[in-house]
Design a protein around this nucleic acid. Structure first.
Lengths: 218, 218
DNA sequence: ATTATCTATAGATCTATAGATAATGC
DNA sequence: ATTATCTATAGATCTATAGATAATGC
Protein backbone atom coordinates (compact mmCIF):
# COMPACT_ATOMS: atom_id res chain seq x y z
CA UNK A 1 0.00 0.00 0.00
CA UNK A 2 1.00 3.55 -0.55
CA UNK A 3 2.22 5.14 2.59
CA UNK A 4 -0.40 7.83 2.33
CA UNK A 5 -0.84 10.17 5.22
CA UNK A 6 -4.57 9.96 5.04
CA UNK A 7 -6.27 11.39 8.08
CA UNK A 8 -7.58 8.70 10.37
CA UNK A 9 -10.84 7.29 9.21
CA UNK A 10 -13.49 6.37 11.72
CA UNK A 11 -13.34 2.68 12.30
CA UNK A 12 -15.41 2.08 15.44
CA UNK A 13 -12.67 -0.17 16.72
CA UNK A 14 -12.02 0.78 20.33
CA UNK A 15 -8.53 1.10 21.79
CA UNK A 16 -7.26 1.13 25.37
CA UNK A 17 -4.83 3.85 24.38
CA UNK A 18 -5.94 7.47 24.78
CA UNK A 19 -3.72 9.45 22.43
CA UNK A 20 -5.55 9.48 19.05
CA UNK A 21 -2.40 10.37 17.18
CA UNK A 22 -0.54 7.45 18.67
CA UNK A 23 -3.45 5.16 17.84
CA UNK A 24 -3.18 6.29 14.25
CA UNK A 25 0.53 5.66 14.01
CA UNK A 26 0.52 2.31 15.80
CA UNK A 27 -2.42 1.03 13.81
CA UNK A 28 -0.66 1.97 10.61
CA UNK A 29 2.38 0.00 11.74
CA UNK A 30 0.10 -2.92 12.53
CA UNK A 31 -1.74 -2.76 9.21
CA UNK A 32 1.45 -2.48 7.21
CA UNK A 33 2.86 -5.56 8.88
CA UNK A 34 -0.38 -7.50 8.77
CA UNK A 35 -1.11 -6.84 5.13
CA UNK A 36 2.27 -8.27 4.17
CA UNK A 37 1.76 -11.36 6.28
CA UNK A 38 -1.84 -11.90 5.17
CA UNK A 39 -0.87 -11.66 1.51
CA UNK A 40 1.96 -14.09 2.01
CA UNK A 41 0.37 -16.70 4.28
CA UNK A 42 -3.29 -15.86 4.47
CA UNK A 43 -5.21 -14.59 7.48
CA UNK A 44 -5.66 -17.86 9.34
CA UNK A 45 -2.09 -19.02 9.03
CA UNK A 46 -0.77 -15.71 10.33
CA UNK A 47 -0.48 -15.58 14.11
CA UNK A 48 -1.00 -12.59 16.35
CA UNK A 49 2.57 -13.06 17.57
CA UNK A 50 3.84 -12.64 14.03
CA UNK A 51 1.76 -9.56 13.48
CA UNK A 52 3.15 -8.05 16.67
CA UNK A 53 6.75 -9.00 15.86
CA UNK A 54 6.52 -7.66 12.32
CA UNK A 55 4.95 -4.47 13.64
CA UNK A 56 7.85 -4.04 16.04
CA UNK A 57 5.67 -4.21 19.14
CA UNK A 58 4.87 -6.84 21.74
CA UNK A 59 1.89 -9.16 21.58
CA UNK A 60 0.50 -7.48 24.64
CA UNK A 61 0.62 -4.05 23.09
CA UNK A 62 -1.12 -5.27 19.97
CA UNK A 63 -4.16 -5.94 22.11
CA UNK A 64 -4.18 -2.37 23.37
CA UNK A 65 -4.93 -1.23 19.83
CA UNK A 66 -7.28 -3.96 18.68
CA UNK A 67 -9.40 -6.40 20.60
CA UNK A 68 -9.02 -9.40 18.32
CA UNK A 69 -7.19 -10.75 15.31
CA UNK A 70 -10.33 -10.11 13.25
CA UNK A 71 -10.03 -6.44 14.14
CA UNK A 72 -6.70 -6.38 12.38
CA UNK A 73 -8.23 -7.94 9.28
CA UNK A 74 -10.99 -5.39 9.28
CA UNK A 75 -8.53 -2.52 9.59
CA UNK A 76 -6.59 -3.92 6.66
CA UNK A 77 -9.63 -4.45 4.43
CA UNK A 78 -10.97 -1.03 5.24
CA UNK A 79 -7.66 0.67 4.45
CA UNK A 80 -7.37 -1.15 1.15
CA UNK A 81 -10.82 -0.09 0.16
CA UNK A 82 -10.17 3.50 1.18
CA UNK A 83 -7.10 3.64 -0.99
CA UNK A 84 -8.77 2.12 -4.03
CA UNK A 85 -11.78 4.36 -3.70
CA UNK A 86 -9.72 7.50 -3.19
CA UNK A 87 -7.57 6.74 -6.20
CA UNK A 88 -10.55 6.01 -8.41
CA UNK A 89 -12.48 9.06 -7.24
CA UNK A 90 -9.48 11.25 -7.95
CA UNK A 91 -9.01 9.67 -11.38
CA UNK A 92 -12.67 10.17 -12.29
CA UNK A 93 -12.30 13.88 -11.52
CA UNK A 94 -9.10 14.25 -13.45
CA UNK A 95 -10.39 12.42 -16.48
CA UNK A 96 -13.88 13.88 -16.72
CA UNK A 97 -12.78 16.79 -18.91
CA UNK A 98 -11.22 14.95 -21.82
CA UNK A 99 -12.78 13.01 -24.65
CA UNK A 100 -13.49 9.33 -24.36
CA UNK A 101 -14.19 9.63 -20.68
CA UNK A 102 -15.37 6.07 -20.24
CA UNK A 103 -12.28 4.52 -21.80
CA UNK A 104 -10.05 6.78 -19.75
CA UNK A 105 -11.88 5.89 -16.57
CA UNK A 106 -11.65 2.19 -17.26
CA UNK A 107 -7.96 2.61 -17.90
CA UNK A 108 -7.35 4.43 -14.63
CA UNK A 109 -9.33 1.92 -12.65
CA UNK A 110 -7.67 -1.10 -14.21
CA UNK A 111 -4.26 0.44 -13.51
CA UNK A 112 -5.22 0.71 -9.83
CA UNK A 113 -6.27 -2.94 -9.88
CA UNK A 114 -2.92 -3.81 -11.38
CA UNK A 115 -1.00 -1.82 -8.83
CA UNK A 116 -3.01 -3.16 -5.90
CA UNK A 117 -3.50 -6.66 -7.20
CA UNK A 118 -2.40 -8.52 -4.09
CA UNK A 119 -4.44 -6.29 -1.81
CA UNK A 120 -7.65 -6.58 -3.76
CA UNK A 121 -7.20 -10.33 -3.95
CA UNK A 122 -6.71 -10.43 -0.21
CA UNK A 123 -10.06 -8.73 0.37
CA UNK A 124 -11.73 -11.27 -1.91
CA UNK A 125 -10.20 -14.21 -0.12
CA UNK A 126 -10.50 -13.20 3.51
CA UNK A 127 -13.72 -11.20 3.76
CA UNK A 128 -15.48 -14.35 4.88
CA UNK A 129 -13.34 -14.52 8.01
CA UNK A 130 -14.73 -11.23 9.29
CA UNK A 131 -17.46 -11.04 11.94
CA UNK A 132 -20.86 -10.48 10.38
CA UNK A 133 -21.19 -6.78 10.88
CA UNK A 134 -17.80 -5.98 9.43
CA UNK A 135 -18.15 -8.34 6.55
CA UNK A 136 -21.28 -6.46 5.62
CA UNK A 137 -19.41 -3.19 5.71
CA UNK A 138 -16.65 -4.49 3.48
CA UNK A 139 -19.22 -5.76 1.02
CA UNK A 140 -21.00 -2.43 1.04
CA UNK A 141 -17.70 -0.80 0.22
CA UNK A 142 -17.67 -2.82 -2.99
CA UNK A 143 -21.03 -1.34 -3.84
CA UNK A 144 -19.78 2.14 -3.08
CA UNK A 145 -16.97 1.72 -5.56
CA UNK A 146 -19.38 0.41 -8.16
CA UNK A 147 -21.63 3.41 -7.60
CA UNK A 148 -18.85 5.73 -8.69
CA UNK A 149 -19.05 4.04 -12.06
CA UNK A 150 -22.84 4.20 -12.06
CA UNK A 151 -22.69 7.98 -11.65
CA UNK A 152 -20.14 8.36 -14.40
CA UNK A 153 -22.14 6.22 -16.80
CA UNK A 154 -25.32 8.14 -16.07
CA UNK A 155 -23.54 11.42 -16.64
CA UNK A 156 -22.30 10.16 -19.98
CA UNK A 157 -25.75 8.92 -20.92
CA UNK A 158 -27.21 12.35 -20.23
CA UNK A 159 -24.61 14.07 -22.38
CA UNK A 160 -25.16 11.60 -25.19
CA UNK A 161 -21.79 9.91 -24.92
CA UNK A 162 -23.27 6.64 -23.77
CA UNK A 163 -26.53 4.89 -24.74
CA UNK A 164 -29.55 5.83 -22.66
CA UNK A 165 -30.13 2.46 -21.08
CA UNK A 166 -32.51 1.55 -18.26
CA UNK A 167 -31.08 2.27 -14.82
CA UNK A 168 -30.77 -1.42 -14.09
CA UNK A 169 -28.67 -2.10 -17.16
CA UNK A 170 -26.39 0.80 -16.32
CA UNK A 171 -25.96 -0.53 -12.82
CA UNK A 172 -25.09 -3.96 -14.08
CA UNK A 173 -22.53 -2.58 -16.50
CA UNK A 174 -20.95 -0.71 -13.60
CA UNK A 175 -20.69 -3.99 -11.70
CA UNK A 176 -19.16 -5.59 -14.76
CA UNK A 177 -16.49 -2.94 -15.03
CA UNK A 178 -15.64 -3.33 -11.35
CA UNK A 179 -15.41 -7.09 -11.61
CA UNK A 180 -13.44 -7.13 -14.86
CA UNK A 181 -10.86 -5.03 -13.03
CA UNK A 182 -10.85 -7.57 -10.20
CA UNK A 183 -10.55 -10.36 -12.74
CA UNK A 184 -7.08 -9.05 -13.51
CA UNK A 185 -6.22 -9.65 -9.85
CA UNK A 186 -7.58 -13.14 -9.41
CA UNK A 187 -6.67 -14.52 -12.83
CA UNK A 188 -3.42 -12.66 -12.99
CA UNK A 189 -1.41 -15.85 -12.64
CA UNK A 190 -2.82 -16.81 -16.04
CA UNK A 191 -3.60 -13.54 -17.78
CA UNK A 192 -0.26 -11.86 -17.20
CA UNK A 193 1.41 -14.69 -19.10
CA UNK A 194 -0.59 -13.77 -22.21
CA UNK A 195 -1.46 -10.09 -21.88
CA UNK A 196 0.38 -7.02 -20.66
CA UNK A 197 -1.80 -4.77 -18.52
CA UNK A 198 -2.03 -2.27 -21.38
CA UNK A 199 -3.06 -5.01 -23.78
CA UNK A 200 -5.62 -6.19 -21.27
CA UNK A 201 -7.01 -2.69 -20.86
CA UNK A 202 -7.29 -2.18 -24.59
CA UNK A 203 -9.09 -5.42 -25.31
CA UNK A 204 -11.39 -5.14 -22.31
CA UNK A 205 -12.31 -1.59 -23.22
CA UNK A 206 -13.32 -2.73 -26.69
CA UNK A 207 -15.34 -5.50 -25.11
CA UNK A 208 -17.11 -3.24 -22.66
CA UNK A 209 -17.88 -0.70 -25.37
CA UNK A 210 -19.30 -3.48 -27.54
CA UNK A 211 -16.77 -2.84 -30.26
CA UNK A 212 -15.61 -6.41 -30.55
CA UNK A 213 -18.77 -8.46 -30.31
CA UNK A 214 -21.53 -6.49 -31.95
CA UNK A 215 -22.07 -7.67 -35.50
CA UNK A 216 -21.14 -4.94 -37.94
CA UNK A 217 -24.53 -4.53 -39.58
CA UNK A 218 -27.22 -5.62 -37.24
CA UNK B 1 -23.84 -30.94 -5.04
CA UNK B 2 -25.80 -33.36 -7.10
CA UNK B 3 -25.49 -36.86 -5.82
CA UNK B 4 -24.16 -38.03 -9.15
CA UNK B 5 -22.76 -41.50 -9.40
CA UNK B 6 -19.80 -40.33 -11.36
CA UNK B 7 -17.12 -42.97 -11.68
CA UNK B 8 -14.18 -42.25 -9.44
CA UNK B 9 -11.85 -39.71 -10.89
CA UNK B 10 -8.15 -40.09 -10.43
CA UNK B 11 -7.07 -37.88 -7.62
CA UNK B 12 -3.54 -39.00 -6.71
CA UNK B 13 -4.50 -38.90 -3.08
CA UNK B 14 -3.29 -42.11 -1.46
CA UNK B 15 -5.37 -44.10 0.97
CA UNK B 16 -4.44 -46.79 3.51
CA UNK B 17 -7.58 -48.66 2.53
CA UNK B 18 -7.33 -51.25 -0.26
CA UNK B 19 -10.88 -51.63 -1.58
CA UNK B 20 -11.25 -48.98 -4.34
CA UNK B 21 -15.02 -49.13 -4.17
CA UNK B 22 -14.99 -48.47 -0.46
CA UNK B 23 -12.57 -45.59 -0.97
CA UNK B 24 -15.03 -44.11 -3.43
CA UNK B 25 -17.99 -44.36 -1.09
CA UNK B 26 -16.20 -43.16 2.01
CA UNK B 27 -14.63 -40.24 0.21
CA UNK B 28 -18.01 -39.21 -1.10
CA UNK B 29 -19.35 -39.27 2.46
CA UNK B 30 -16.41 -37.18 3.55
CA UNK B 31 -16.77 -34.69 0.71
CA UNK B 32 -20.50 -34.28 1.24
CA UNK B 33 -19.98 -33.54 4.91
CA UNK B 34 -16.97 -31.32 4.35
CA UNK B 35 -18.53 -29.21 1.64
CA UNK B 36 -21.42 -28.35 3.92
CA UNK B 37 -19.13 -27.42 6.77
CA UNK B 38 -16.71 -25.45 4.60
CA UNK B 39 -19.53 -23.44 3.06
CA UNK B 40 -20.97 -22.70 6.47
CA UNK B 41 -17.84 -21.96 8.50
CA UNK B 42 -14.99 -21.83 6.05
CA UNK B 43 -12.11 -24.26 5.72
CA UNK B 44 -9.96 -23.05 8.60
CA UNK B 45 -12.72 -22.86 11.16
CA UNK B 46 -13.86 -26.39 10.36
CA UNK B 47 -12.05 -29.05 12.40
CA UNK B 48 -11.13 -32.54 11.29
CA UNK B 49 -13.20 -33.83 14.18
CA UNK B 50 -16.27 -32.11 12.79
CA UNK B 51 -15.64 -33.46 9.31
CA UNK B 52 -15.38 -36.97 10.74
CA UNK B 53 -18.46 -36.60 12.91
CA UNK B 54 -20.55 -35.17 10.06
CA UNK B 55 -19.31 -37.94 7.79
CA UNK B 56 -20.44 -40.50 10.33
CA UNK B 57 -16.96 -41.92 10.86
CA UNK B 58 -14.26 -41.58 13.52
CA UNK B 59 -11.42 -39.10 13.32
CA UNK B 60 -9.01 -41.99 13.03
CA UNK B 61 -10.77 -43.45 10.05
CA UNK B 62 -10.80 -40.11 8.28
CA UNK B 63 -7.03 -40.33 8.18
CA UNK B 64 -7.17 -43.69 6.45
CA UNK B 65 -8.78 -41.99 3.46
CA UNK B 66 -6.86 -38.73 3.39
CA UNK B 67 -3.54 -37.75 4.85
CA UNK B 68 -4.38 -34.21 5.85
CA UNK B 69 -7.17 -31.70 6.18
CA UNK B 70 -5.91 -30.07 2.99
CA UNK B 71 -6.54 -33.33 1.18
CA UNK B 72 -10.20 -33.01 2.04
CA UNK B 73 -10.29 -29.49 0.64
CA UNK B 74 -8.67 -30.65 -2.57
CA UNK B 75 -11.16 -33.50 -2.96
CA UNK B 76 -13.98 -31.02 -2.49
CA UNK B 77 -12.62 -28.45 -4.96
CA UNK B 78 -11.92 -31.12 -7.52
CA UNK B 79 -15.41 -32.58 -7.25
CA UNK B 80 -17.01 -29.17 -7.59
CA UNK B 81 -15.02 -28.46 -10.70
CA UNK B 82 -15.84 -31.85 -12.18
CA UNK B 83 -19.53 -31.25 -11.72
CA UNK B 84 -19.47 -27.75 -13.20
CA UNK B 85 -17.42 -28.86 -16.15
CA UNK B 86 -19.53 -31.92 -16.83
CA UNK B 87 -22.72 -29.90 -16.72
CA UNK B 88 -21.36 -27.23 -19.01
CA UNK B 89 -19.89 -29.71 -21.48
CA UNK B 90 -23.22 -31.50 -21.64
CA UNK B 91 -25.08 -28.24 -22.13
CA UNK B 92 -22.76 -27.12 -24.92
CA UNK B 93 -23.51 -30.35 -26.76
CA UNK B 94 -27.23 -30.10 -26.27
CA UNK B 95 -27.42 -26.49 -27.33
CA UNK B 96 -25.07 -26.55 -30.33
CA UNK B 97 -27.83 -27.41 -32.79
CA UNK B 98 -30.24 -24.57 -32.23
CA UNK B 99 -30.10 -20.96 -33.25
CA UNK B 100 -28.48 -18.33 -31.05
CA UNK B 101 -25.98 -20.83 -29.75
CA UNK B 102 -23.94 -18.31 -27.79
CA UNK B 103 -26.91 -16.90 -25.90
CA UNK B 104 -28.13 -20.41 -25.13
CA UNK B 105 -24.70 -21.44 -23.88
CA UNK B 106 -24.39 -18.38 -21.66
CA UNK B 107 -27.80 -19.14 -20.26
CA UNK B 108 -26.96 -22.75 -19.44
CA UNK B 109 -23.68 -21.78 -17.85
CA UNK B 110 -25.15 -18.99 -15.75
CA UNK B 111 -27.85 -21.36 -14.55
CA UNK B 112 -25.16 -23.75 -13.34
CA UNK B 113 -23.48 -20.88 -11.53
CA UNK B 114 -26.78 -20.05 -9.91
CA UNK B 115 -27.40 -23.61 -8.85
CA UNK B 116 -23.87 -24.13 -7.55
CA UNK B 117 -23.36 -20.66 -6.18
CA UNK B 118 -22.11 -21.65 -2.75
CA UNK B 119 -19.75 -24.24 -4.14
CA UNK B 120 -18.16 -21.99 -6.71
CA UNK B 121 -17.74 -19.30 -4.09
CA UNK B 122 -16.06 -21.81 -1.81
CA UNK B 123 -13.46 -22.61 -4.45
CA UNK B 124 -12.76 -18.90 -4.87
CA UNK B 125 -12.32 -18.35 -1.17
CA UNK B 126 -10.34 -21.38 -0.12
CA UNK B 127 -8.08 -22.23 -3.06
CA UNK B 128 -5.31 -20.29 -1.36
CA UNK B 129 -5.30 -22.75 1.54
CA UNK B 130 -4.26 -25.64 -0.73
CA UNK B 131 -0.67 -26.86 -0.97
CA UNK B 132 1.08 -25.43 -4.00
CA UNK B 133 0.74 -28.32 -6.38
CA UNK B 134 -2.97 -28.72 -5.79
CA UNK B 135 -3.69 -25.07 -5.92
CA UNK B 136 -2.12 -25.04 -9.33
CA UNK B 137 -4.36 -27.89 -10.44
CA UNK B 138 -7.48 -26.15 -9.24
CA UNK B 139 -6.45 -23.01 -11.08
CA UNK B 140 -5.79 -24.97 -14.23
CA UNK B 141 -9.29 -26.37 -13.94
CA UNK B 142 -10.57 -22.83 -14.25
CA UNK B 143 -8.68 -22.52 -17.49
CA UNK B 144 -10.12 -25.80 -18.74
CA UNK B 145 -13.62 -24.52 -18.20
CA UNK B 146 -12.79 -21.30 -19.98
CA UNK B 147 -11.39 -23.28 -22.89
CA UNK B 148 -14.77 -24.87 -23.48
CA UNK B 149 -16.03 -21.39 -24.21
CA UNK B 150 -13.04 -20.61 -26.38
CA UNK B 151 -13.83 -23.62 -28.58
CA UNK B 152 -17.46 -22.66 -28.88
CA UNK B 153 -16.66 -19.07 -29.79
CA UNK B 154 -14.16 -20.18 -32.41
CA UNK B 155 -16.68 -22.56 -33.91
CA UNK B 156 -19.20 -19.75 -34.13
CA UNK B 157 -16.64 -17.43 -35.67
CA UNK B 158 -15.91 -19.99 -38.40
CA UNK B 159 -19.58 -20.40 -39.21
CA UNK B 160 -20.07 -16.64 -39.34
CA UNK B 161 -22.25 -16.43 -36.23
CA UNK B 162 -19.65 -14.51 -34.31
CA UNK B 163 -17.15 -11.85 -35.43
CA UNK B 164 -13.79 -13.16 -36.60
CA UNK B 165 -11.65 -11.67 -33.88
CA UNK B 166 -8.00 -12.32 -33.11
CA UNK B 167 -7.45 -15.44 -31.03
CA UNK B 168 -6.42 -13.37 -28.03
CA UNK B 169 -9.62 -11.37 -28.04
CA UNK B 170 -11.67 -14.52 -28.28
CA UNK B 171 -9.80 -15.99 -25.34
CA UNK B 172 -10.38 -12.92 -23.26
CA UNK B 173 -14.09 -12.92 -24.03
CA UNK B 174 -14.22 -16.53 -22.91
CA UNK B 175 -12.62 -15.51 -19.62
CA UNK B 176 -15.14 -12.70 -19.32
CA UNK B 177 -18.05 -15.06 -19.75
CA UNK B 178 -16.64 -17.41 -17.12
CA UNK B 179 -16.07 -14.61 -14.66
CA UNK B 180 -19.43 -12.90 -15.24
CA UNK B 181 -20.98 -16.22 -14.27
CA UNK B 182 -18.87 -16.28 -11.13
CA UNK B 183 -19.82 -12.69 -10.44
CA UNK B 184 -23.35 -13.93 -9.81
CA UNK B 185 -21.92 -16.13 -7.06
CA UNK B 186 -19.75 -13.61 -5.25
CA UNK B 187 -22.02 -10.58 -5.62
CA UNK B 188 -25.16 -12.58 -5.17
CA UNK B 189 -25.83 -11.02 -1.77
CA UNK B 190 -26.32 -7.75 -3.65
CA UNK B 191 -27.41 -8.75 -7.15
CA UNK B 192 -30.19 -11.12 -6.14
CA UNK B 193 -31.89 -8.24 -4.35
CA UNK B 194 -32.18 -6.39 -7.64
CA UNK B 195 -32.18 -9.00 -10.38
CA UNK B 196 -33.73 -12.42 -10.79
CA UNK B 197 -31.36 -14.94 -12.35
CA UNK B 198 -33.31 -14.76 -15.60
CA UNK B 199 -33.15 -10.99 -15.60
CA UNK B 200 -29.43 -11.19 -14.91
CA UNK B 201 -28.92 -13.63 -17.77
CA UNK B 202 -30.85 -11.47 -20.19
CA UNK B 203 -29.02 -8.27 -19.39
CA UNK B 204 -25.60 -9.89 -19.29
CA UNK B 205 -26.21 -11.60 -22.61
CA UNK B 206 -27.01 -8.26 -24.19
CA UNK B 207 -23.87 -6.85 -22.64
CA UNK B 208 -21.65 -9.66 -23.85
CA UNK B 209 -23.11 -9.49 -27.33
CA UNK B 210 -22.49 -5.76 -27.38
CA UNK B 211 -26.15 -5.01 -27.84
CA UNK B 212 -26.40 -2.54 -25.01
CA UNK B 213 -23.24 -0.51 -25.24
CA UNK B 214 -22.38 -0.14 -28.90
CA UNK B 215 -23.66 3.17 -30.21
CA UNK B 216 -26.41 2.61 -32.76
CA UNK B 217 -24.70 4.23 -35.71
CA UNK B 218 -21.00 4.09 -35.26
C1' DA C 1 -4.65 -63.28 8.66
C1' DT C 2 -5.97 -59.30 6.74
C1' DT C 3 -8.47 -55.23 6.38
C1' DA C 4 -11.25 -51.65 8.34
C1' DT C 5 -12.48 -49.16 12.19
C1' DC C 6 -12.47 -46.88 16.74
C1' DT C 7 -10.74 -44.71 21.18
C1' DA C 8 -7.71 -42.00 23.46
C1' DT C 9 -4.13 -38.72 23.47
C1' DA C 10 0.75 -36.74 22.50
C1' DG C 11 2.50 -32.86 20.97
C1' DA C 12 2.17 -28.61 19.15
C1' DT C 13 0.10 -24.74 18.69
C1' DC C 14 -2.31 -19.93 19.31
C1' DT C 15 -5.24 -16.17 21.27
C1' DA C 16 -5.85 -13.11 24.68
C1' DT C 17 -4.81 -11.37 29.32
C1' DA C 18 -2.83 -10.51 34.07
C1' DG C 19 0.54 -8.35 36.34
C1' DA C 20 5.06 -6.02 36.28
C1' DT C 21 7.84 -2.25 34.40
C1' DA C 22 9.05 1.86 31.89
C1' DA C 23 7.98 6.46 30.09
C1' DT C 24 5.51 10.78 30.35
C1' DG C 25 3.64 15.06 32.01
C1' DC C 26 1.72 17.72 35.73
C1' DA D 1 -0.34 9.59 38.80
C1' DT D 2 -1.31 8.32 34.45
C1' DT D 3 -0.44 6.23 30.23
C1' DA D 4 2.03 3.04 27.35
C1' DT D 5 4.53 -0.96 27.03
C1' DC D 6 6.48 -5.57 27.93
C1' DT D 7 6.98 -10.45 29.72
C1' DA D 8 5.17 -14.63 30.77
C1' DT D 9 1.53 -17.81 30.56
C1' DA D 10 -3.41 -19.74 31.41
C1' DG D 11 -6.56 -21.91 29.00
C1' DA D 12 -8.31 -23.69 25.09
C1' DT D 13 -7.81 -25.61 21.13
C1' DC D 14 -6.68 -28.89 16.99
C1' DT D 15 -4.19 -32.19 13.91
C1' DA D 16 -2.54 -36.49 13.29
C1' DT D 17 -1.25 -41.01 15.13
C1' DA D 18 -0.45 -45.22 18.10
C1' DG D 19 -2.44 -49.04 19.69
C1' DA D 20 -6.64 -51.72 20.60
C1' DT D 21 -10.81 -53.84 18.65
C1' DA D 22 -14.13 -55.42 15.28
C1' DA D 23 -15.34 -57.28 10.76
C1' DT D 24 -14.25 -59.93 6.73
C1' DG D 25 -12.85 -63.65 3.74
C1' DC D 26 -9.97 -67.55 2.85
Amino acid sequence: MKNTDTPERITDIPSQVKDPDLIGRRRRQIMDAAVRLFIEKGFHKTTTREIARESGISTGLLYEYVSSKEDVLYLVCDAIHAEVEATVAEAVQRVSEGSNVLAAMIREYFLVCDRMSDHILLVYQETKALPDQWRRRVLENEVKLTNIFVSTLEGLARSGDFPRLPRKSIELIAHNITVLGHMWTFRRWFLSRHYSIEDYIKRQTDFILGKSTKKETQ
